[in-house]
Design a binder for these strands. Structure first.
Lengths: 193, 193
DNA sequence: GCTCCGATCTTTACAATGTAAAGATTAGTA
DNA sequence: TACTAATCTTTACATTGTAAAGATCGGAGC
């Protein structure tokens, strides 16, 4: 691991280095060469693992998205019924990005959030956070004994998603001061849906 | 204007060139030097008008934001009552970015949407699209004779904004195919609020 | 008209970056 | 043990942002 010619696990090390750079210096300071330098490797070494910079960034996004998904799961696990789980999930969605505004900018600056997870897919059903939301929503319907058409369900989920995502976006915009405490659980819950 | 040493209106020309590059080749192809080349000017000429690349990009964002604000105004002007104006404004918010997905990515990738309009300010009250929304919302309250506390009003506006912005974000994510027609006025109106 | 000043633009230069190509090193396999 | 493919280094080049020094020009004042 120290001074060997072969790094051992360069691919993952580059991803970790990328995340570290984003957290410490911001996304605009992220470069192939800096990530390589952090791994004590020549600036061309990453090309053995990634086709180009875009592919490295994609892998980093996939990693951060996984973190995000885990956070959503954890939030839901603590709740007893599906209704409170749905609200808690929305709160958690906003909270994750309020705590990591740089991640919001990083993840959603490409407008292609699915491709990083499953390169061949481009449907929201392949986007883990969406899948989690849909699961919880369907549980909620069942729990309450509510019957809805497929289209109504689709619209409901879209509304929920848009609500959480929109609030997260507004909360993350450092230039948009709202007289709002984005860490106040009750306050955010009141905004959701 | 043709081959003179002084361009005449380079500042605006650079902004227009930037917008053109974004529309034709995407934001990632936007560079100081390409914008300068489009204006038939040396690559260092922009520094007479902008401190650095960031400032040029800020000016471009301000210009696009102005376009966006005009669109919102136009949408509201056609409506007779404030309630329909509010809905139409939300539809217009989404529609503008569905028609120009690159603009969404461009405008909201910085997370500092106010600074470009008024460099010294960082409050949402200085962000024209927000001001338009607030205006229309307050007219709506008056029209309906509804009394609400300052906090309730604040929350309502935030909900409206987040709803529209979130839908726009989801609609713009090319990797997220929804079985949804983002040009269907009625369908989008049903999703708002 | 002429002079001068500041704004505007060019030229030159340099460092950082992404990436291609050729070769060195090594792990794992036949 | 020899070979092969994966991994990494070195070298090279084009593109970029930006700084510095100087050229050009428009307009204010005389």
């Amino acid at each position: 691991m120290s001074d060997r010619y072969h790094h051992g696990n360069l691919r993952q090390a580059l991803i970790d280095a990328g995340i570290r750079i984003i957290n410490e210096s911001g996304e605009d300071k992220l470069s192939l060469r800096k990530a390589a330098a952090l791994c004590r490797v020549s600036h061309a070494a990453p090309y053995a693992h990634f086709k180009d910079k875009e592919e490295l960034i994609g892998a980093i996004k996939a990693s951060v998205t996984e973190q995000f998904t885990e956070e959503l799961k954890r939030a839901v696990d603590g709740e007893e019924n599906a209704e409170s789980a749905l609200v808690e999930m929305g709160r958690s969605y906003v909270s994750f990005f309020v705590c990591n505004p740089d991640y919001f900018k990083f993840l959603f600056s490409s407008l292609n959030i699915v491709a990083h997870i499953r390169p061949d897919r481009q449907h929201k059903e392949d986007y883990p956070p969406f899948v989690r939301l849909k699961e919880t929503y369907l549980k909620y319907l069942k729990e309450k004994g509510i019957k809805k058409s497929r289209d109504e369900q689709e619209a409901d989920i879209l509304r929920l998603w848009a609500s959480a995502h929109g609030l997260a976006a507004i909360a993350c915009m450092s230039g948009v001061e709202t007289s709002f405490d984005w860490n106040d659980r009750g306050a955010i819950e009141a905004l959701l849906l």
